[in-house]
């Protein structure tokens, strides 16, 4: 080939894989998953039951299995020494930009919260130029945050579709029923901040070739992640059962559950990643100079931690 005669000295070949069936299988899995999920949601809406859930589960299994074998292949290629330093950098860039895309996903929901609290809410309550018109629609509605009584309730009373949880039933510290010591978000903050430290300790252990420290700290991190999810489950249970605060409680419940829910889902993802890294560590994977799989998972974990800190301030405190 013409290009070969002009090669640059000392270039490590960039591994371009042969044909691969993983992408098309993953596409089929992804498609079946979302098609089934959409069908399932529509069936729920129409109060019928059909095949939606089964298509969705099948799709999810195909997708998960494909990703499992896909990652396994990528890992084994690396362990066979097929990946040049340049290729490894491609994975680093890939993970970094993926995390940026996740940041922007959360930005949409934080943005919604900001808009509602600073603009839409006060206008609904009759403030400013815009408030004049809206006050005619939602007469007597007073805007406060957390919004424990919806405009719907103020105007339509018992016929309201969106029913707030009522005064004193928010998850702000002021409403913590048995005092601050029983306020779960505080514990979750401590847990998640601690887990960011422990995952860093695991990294330090790996870098020092201290595998038992690496695995021990990683195990603790996963355990803290599970602990976080357990406390979040308790909190949601309290909100739904004791406080009557649900997704349908108007905009406070909406933003609270969507922000903390997506965060919790990302904690679950990050915890799963770290668990896989722990299992890989048990199999003897990772060395102090080649451990990007673990580092990527720990980056993700730090990202999840930062999102929580923002949540703690903007959803629970301010």
């Amino acid at each position: 080939m013409a290009t070969d005669s002009k090669s640059v000295d000392g270039y490590e070949p960039y591994y371009v894989p042969e044909q691969s069936a993983f992408p098309i299988l993953a596409t089929i899995g992804l498609f079946a998953f979302v098609f089934g999920l959409g069908t399932f949601f529509n069936e729920m809406q129409a109060e019928t039951s059909g095949s939606g859930r089964y298509i969705s589960i099948a799709g999810f299994l195909i997708l998960s299995a494909t990703l499992f074998f896909w990652f396994r292949q990528a890992i084994s290629e690396n362990m066979q020494g097929m990946n040049s330093m340049q290729l490894k950098r491609s994975y680093v860039w890939g993970m970094g930009w993926f995390i940026f895309s996740e940041v922007m996903f959360f930005a949409a929901f934080f943005g919604a919260l900001f808009y509602v609290r600073n603009f839409a809410g006060p206008w609904l309550g009759g403030e400013g130029d815009k408030g004049v018109h809206i006050a005619l629609l939602w007469e007597n509605f007073k805007y406060t945050w957390p919004m424990m009584e919806t405009p719907d309730q103020v105007v339509n009373g018992a016929k309201a579709a969106f029913v707030g949880a009522g005064e004193g039933n928010s998850l702000y510290p002021a409403d913590a029923h048995n005092g601050l010591l029983h306020w779960l978000p505080l514990y979750n903050t401590i847990i998640l901040l601690a887990s960011s430290v422990t995952v860093h300790m695991a990294h330090v252990g790996l870098k020092n070739d201290n595998r038992s420290a690496f695995k021990g700290w990683l195990f603790i991190t996963v355990a803290l992640g599970i602990g976080f999810l357990f406390l979040q489950y308790m909190e949601y249970h309290e909100a739904y059962v004791d406080l009557g605060l649900t997704l349908e409680s108007g905009i406070y419940g909406t933003t609270f559950f969507m922000l903390t829910g997506f965060h919790g889902f990302h904690v679950f993802l990050g915890m799963t990643m770290l668990l896989i890294m722990l299992l890989r560590a048990q199999k003897g994977h990772f060395s102090h100079e080649d451990c990007f799989g673990f580092e990527a998972a720990s980056w993700y974990w730090h990202f999840v931690d930062v999102v929580w800190v923002c949540l703690f301030f903007f959803v629970y405190i301010i």
């Binding site: 922007m104 930005a107 949409a108 919806t150 969106f162 969507m258």
Partner: peptide, 30 residues
């Protein structure tokens, strides 16, 4: 911005199927 679009359609999905009130003034959204 594609993740913001994903967030946008997710809010729609939740409003349609799960009773949230992002885009409903009755529930305090807009």
């Amino acid at each position: 911005v594609m993740p913001v679009l994903a967030g946008c359609v997710t809010m729609m999905l939740m409003d349609i199927h799960f009773g949230t009130s992002f885009f409903s003034a009755a529930g305090g959204g807009d």
